[in-house]
Amino acid sequence: MNALAAIGEILVLLGTFFYFLSALGLIRMPDVYNRMQTSTKSATLGSLGVLVGVGIWALGTDFGSIPWLTKTVVIAVFLLLTNPISAHALIRAAYKSGIPLWEGSVVDRYREHLEAKEKEKVEAPEGAEETPAEEGGEE
């Protein structure tokens, strides 16, 4: 009974801590890509912790029930699936609109890849740009 509430409280605390870290990363990091990295990852994890924690916490109290936990888990799974996709789309759009990397960045394989591709298809003008997606989204 109370163990469930305690576990839930700890999870919520962890989640809010990760929220705080994500907000901190948003201020602290030097460029868009690093900010995105810190904020999305820790915000996703923080939401998971808070949501599942709230569900378990409610189970431990007298008003909680299994549907509570089910709802929070469904929301958590939805966030887990959608947050990385939106982060990927945002980052890719940022790169495509020409936002520069941090000046301390060492290597930009995606640009090299794009330039190689550009050179490749001088004779073939029409082409899809589906393959670079894997590299483009990550960082």
Binding site: T82, I85, H88, A89, K96, E130, A133, E134, G136, G137
Partner: peptide
Amino acid sequence: KTEGSIVLTTGTRLLVPF
């Protein structure tokens, strides 16, 4: 002009029914 990246299209395919 540009299709969404493969992550986006696959994710959309997965999410739209839900």
